[in-house]
């Protein structure tokens, strides 16, 4: 028997294709929307030779890792931000009444196919960036070049899930999650050296966003971290991601438990 998640996903895609014209406009616009990041980068380099001490060939690699990772995460779990809506309308109950994992169902039930175009575009852009950037290729870097965008995707997915789970405690949280999901993407698209003071400390290291694109890119480029991190830290991104995933898992499960005891 076919995997029920695959079947649900198929149904979701068929539903979306019911509104064909709107779907394709949405698909192309969403694709264009993520191309904006890249365009923005070139706009900035029109007026300045360097961003945070790095030239465009270096920054483009950071933007590309962040962009590819974010697009994948957004496609896979981005719609989890609708959890609020599911709780409010009682749809979460319907989900819990089915013999499947709640998170798994929520992800496929609201799968945003229109974001698929972005993943293709993000991946292509990453490949281009790899050829343009002065990467110091060796065996370890080849592996890290493959790991980096996937690592970024897992990191962002965990951020999406953790923030969505806030709704279990605080349903009227507005779009606070965007500060760290889309905000995280904006932060990671640039070298962390562009930011200063406690804000950089918080986003880059407190929340771990430096490990998404900035540090892996430095590792690939064979550059040392100018703020003063040891060179080995550039290779630690998967470990940081693991921690973030564990936090996401714990938050989600605690949230579901809370829903079970309060039902609101």
């Amino acid at each position: 028997m076919a995997n029920p998640y695959v079947k649900l996903l198929g149904a979701q895609i068929r539903s979306q294709l019911q509104y064909r014209a709107s779907f394709f406009l949405d698909l192309s616009m969403a694709t264009l929307l993520s191309a904006v990041d890249i365009g923005a980068l070139f706009l900035l380099f029109r007026v300045t030779p360097a961003l945070g001490g790095f030239g465009w060939r270096e920054v483009i690699l950071m933007t590309a890792i962040s962009g590819a990772g974010f697009c994948m995460a957004d496609l896979a779990v981005g719609e989890i931000e609708r959890l609020k809506h599911y709780i409010r309308t009682g749809l979460l109950d319907t989900v819990l009444l089915r013999p499947m994992s709640a998170l798994g169902q929520l992800l496929v039930l609201d799968f945003a196919t229109r974001r698929a175009g972005r993943v293709v575009q993000g991946t292509l852009f990453y490949l281009v960036a790899l050829t343009v950037a002065p990467v110091k290729w060796d065996a370890a870097r080849v592996v890290y070049a493959i790991v980096a965008p996937i690592n970024a995707a897992v990191f962002f997915s965990a951020v999406f899930v953790t923030l969505a789970a806030i709704a279990f405690w605080w349903i009227e949280s507005g779009d606070i999650a965007n500060a760290f999901t889309y905000g995280g993407r904006d932060f990671t698209a640039y070298p962390s050296t562009m930011f200063h003071g406690w804000f950089r400390g918080l986003f880059a290291f407190g929340l771990g966003f430096a490990f998404v694109a900035y540090l892996p890119a430095l590792a690939l480029l064979g550059l040392s971290e100018p703020i003063g991190l040891p060179d080995w830290a550039r290779w630690c991104s998967p470990l940081v991601t693991l921690v973030v995933v564990l936090i996401a898992r714990a938050t989600w499960l605690a949230g579901l438990r809370r829903y079970g005891s309060t039902g609101s």
Binding site: M1, N3, P4, L8, A11, R14, S15, Q18, D93, T94
Partner: peptide, 22 residues
């Protein structure tokens, strides 16, 4: 509340539920 798929024919909802419940 509905457990059916809003935009799909009723037939499809039943087929999907067969997979959901194996």
């Amino acid at each position: 509340r509905s457990q059916l798929w809003w935009d799909l024919p009723l037939r499809d909802s039943f087929a999907l539920l067969r997979h959901v419940y194996r």
